[in-house]
Computed example of a mutant assay.
Amino acid sequence: MQRKITKQNNFYYMTAALVVLLLSASLVKSVADGMLETFLEGTIAATFLVCVVSLGIDKSWKRFMQALIVIWLIAAVLKRYTDIAHIDLLMLGLMFAFFWGTFSSIARQILFSGSVNGNKIVGSIALFLLLGLMWALVYLLILALSPNAFSGIEQSAWGQNFSQMAYFSFVTLTTLGYGDISPNTPFAQVAVYMEAIAGVFYMAIVVASLVSAGLAQKETQ
């Protein structure tokens, strides 16, 4: 029996898609060079599609995200067949806008609203993954504009560095700070400690949201 995406399970699909994206990015360097961009871009496009379908109930969000996907796909095709300068920056900017829109839509649905259930808890995980992915894109943009901004990683096509920057982003977001990749320039350093601050506050906000929603649910019952 085919399962439909509803308000009771939509975040399960989205979180699974984000995890698959991160796993796929980690496998990119083991893929043949000729298939590298196609492999990663195909995975990103599939993730976009799952996000749009999962959040189809948010109509104001859906049209904007659909437009972003179309523009991103056009940019991917232009990158493949033309030599337009800075097309990579455009693609990274569009990805950031898409993930930010997804983050905002999920936050409106799960933070400080409604009762607590498994879908909302999984949605909070999706929010955390999106937060890390957005900062990874910020670091990729910084690296593209300033090749010496980070030590431990060399400037190359963003697809080749996506997994490493996602790793660095989540290490920073969770305040682990292994030190194998570190910021060198003042702007990169500001971006890194701002992410660490965002990670700490995110945990506090999510816990407060779930606790308050849980208490409200008990009072209602």
Rank of each mutant, 00 (worst) to 15 (best):
S146H: 01
V122C: 00
A16E: 07
L94P: 08
K4Q: 02
G214D: 11
F103N: 11
F201L: 09
M91G: 14
G177A: 06
Y202F: 09
I142D: 14
K4L: 04
S24R: 08
V171N: 15
L68T: 04
G114L: 07
L145V: 08
T185F: 00
G179S: 12
S169I: 06
V211S: 02
I153R: 14
G34A: 12
A191W: 00
W61Y: 12
T102I: 14
A208T: 05
R108D: 02
C51L: 09
V211E: 05
L133S: 10
L111R: 02
I181C: 09
A196Q: 15
T47Q: 09
S115G: 15
V116P: 15
Y13H: 07
P186W: 05
V53F: 13
L111M: 03
A32F: 00
K29D: 06
V207D: 04
S124Q: 01
L140H: 06
W135E: 01
N119G: 02
Y178R: 00
I69W: 03
L94Q: 00
A196Y: 09
V53G: 00
I205T: 11
Y193V: 13
W100Q: 08
M134W: 11
I5F: 05
A16H: 08
I110P: 07
F201Y: 04
S156Q: 07
G56A: 08
V192P: 03
I69F: 02
W158C: 10
S113W: 11
Q8M: 01
A188Y: 14
I153F: 00
S26L: 15
A216S: 13
A75M: 11
S113T: 12
A136C: 10
Q2E: 04
A198D: 04
I74N: 11
D88Y: 13
T175Q: 01
L36C: 12
W100K: 03
A216F: 00
T6N: 05
N9G: 03
F96A: 05
M194L: 08
A46M: 06
S26H: 11
V206D: 01
I69C: 10
F48R: 04
V200N: 04
I87H: 00
K218Q: 12
A97H: 07
I57V: 15
L40I: 09
T220E: 13
V116D: 14
I69M: 08
I84V: 13
A198P: 00
I57T: 14
V70M: 09
M194D: 02
F96D: 02
A136W: 15
L40E: 05
G118A: 05
T82P: 11
G179K: 01
I197S: 15
A67K: 14
L137P: 02
G152P: 14
S212C: 13
N9M: 14
I71K: 04
P183E: 06
